[in-house]
Write a protein that binds this DNA or RNA. Structure first.
Length: 289
DNA sequence: ACGGATTCCTGATGGC
DNA sequence: TGCCATCAGGAATCCG
């Protein structure tokens, strides 16, 4: 599922394909994919040029504007922003000429004959359009406005202050997008394993030096995953349709019952914060942290 | 203010 | 082989 490293990879592979291209048409095959709705979405998107591609947390952002001198820009607010949340199975794929793909919910037709497909098997994802730039209408979206800081832009002190508080379980803090933006089930499990902390430890009970280790584990895991173009369990692909490789480095996620890569004892699964969480009871002990 | 359950959705998987 | 239950999960929403 696309978390921070996957969305970052999509942004990097998408940018050279779509930046500088004009959105000529929005073909909506599934109205529920577009917020606030297909007509409003198209009104903000069509005619504008994609200026740049970015990411915030798990959101993929397309910044739009008019080309200088474009007649359509006269009297219209120039900026707009598209945000895609891919949830579990969403994909943004640049289709090669003649290429088709499954489960397309929205097709953006760009200048130069480029087609950008939003495909999404389980239809949990969505694409949102807002007037203005990053300081514009998107700030009225609670989910965006309440996003916590980027884990790769934080320092240890801020991470410890935000994550290491309360009686909430540590993993719930990592998954809470208002605490830190971009971490999902995979990277939460991987970071906790590397830091030697159990997912169900009350966040406030973790000593600062252990939280410091967790901070560095989070950053290391995210950086390595980005370097490997993300994790492809089943559905994730980059903008070219290529799989990532970080799934080959999993030491916790999805390894319940398998031997711990550090001590050889069987990994345990347990439900924490509503998600399956895999950890090693010996290497991630609840007591004596 | 917290955890938990439920909803959304489809495909893979396992038991019988 | 076929059928049914279960599981996968990000975030909104409701409930205790």
């Amino acid at each position: 599922m696309p978390e921070l490293p996957e969305v970052e990879t999509i942004a990097r592979t998408l940018a050279p394909e779509v930046a500088g291209r004009r959105i000529e048409a929005v073909e909506c095959l599934d109205p529920s994919a577009l917020r606030p709705g297909p007509e409003a979405f198209a009104a903000l998107a069509v005619g504008r040029e994609i200026l740049s591609v970015g990411r915030r947390g798990k959101l993929l952002l397309l910044r739009l504007g008019f080309r200088p001198g474009d007649a359509a820009a006269a009297g219209a607010a120039a900026g707009a922003l598209l945000a895609a949340h891919l949830r579990m199975t969403g994909r943004l794929i640049v289709l090669s000429p003649g290429q088709d793909t499954d489960r397309v919910r929205v097709l953006l037709r760009l200048s130069g004959g480029v087609r950008l497909a939003f495909a999404d098997l389980r239809r949990f994802g969505s694409m949102h359009a807002f007037p203005g730039g990053l300081d514009g209408g998107i700030c009225a979206w609670d989910f965006y406005a309440n996003l916590g800081p980027e884990p790769l832009d934080m320092d240890a002190a801020e991470f410890i202050a935000r994550v290491g508080r309360g009686r909430t379980m540590l993993k719930a803090r990592l998954l809470d997008q208002t605490v830190v933006a971009g971490i999902g089930n995979i990277y939460a499990d991987e970071a906790l394993f590397r830091a030697g902390l159990p997912p169900h430890l009350p966040a406030g009970a973790a000593p600062p030096e252990r939280l410091d280790a967790l901070f560095h584990a989070v950053q290391a895991v995210l950086r390595q995953a980005i370097a490997e173009n993300g994790s492809s369990i089943r559905d994730y692909r980059d903008a070219h349709g290529d799989a990532g490789a970080f799934q080959n480095h999993f030491r916790a996620y999805g390894r319940a019952g398998k031997p711990c890569t550090a001590c050889g004892q069987p990994m345990q699964a347990r439900r924490v914060a509503g998600r399956t969480s895999t950890f090693c009871p010996l290497c991630q002990p609840l007591r004596g942290v």
